[in-house]
């Protein structure tokens, strides 16, 4: 029994390891590991010209998006300009 429990716990850890949890626009989101910012936006069908991205509090230039590999607990704000008075 004991060994079985240990085995379960290990497999759970393994499972957790392959998912990265980040925060996108204030919402905890699970993404695959080693995903860079540019690829993330692509999978979400976001046009690079349409948004402003804040990565852990700093605005990141579009040119750097492929270089940022998202890590556990990273925080992203993906913003855009809309009509307003």
């Amino acid at each position: 029994m004991v060994s079985l429990q240990l085995f379960s716990a290990n497999s759970l850890i393994n499972k957790v390891m392959v998912i990265v949890q980040i925060k996108i626009n204030g919402k905890v989101t699970e993404i695959e590991p080693s995903l860079n910012l540019a690829s993330l936006l692509e999978t979400r069908r976001i046009k690079p010209g349409a948004v402003v991205v804040q990565y852990n509090g700093d605005i990141v230039d579009k040119g750097l998006w492929t270089k940022i590999v998202l890590q556990e607990n990273d925080e992203l704000e993906i913003l855009r300009f809309v009509g307003g008075g």
Partner: peptide, 10 residues
Amino acid sequence: VTVALRRVDF
């Protein structure tokens, strides 16, 4: 011209 900033709606 004024504009506003909002979170993207995916």
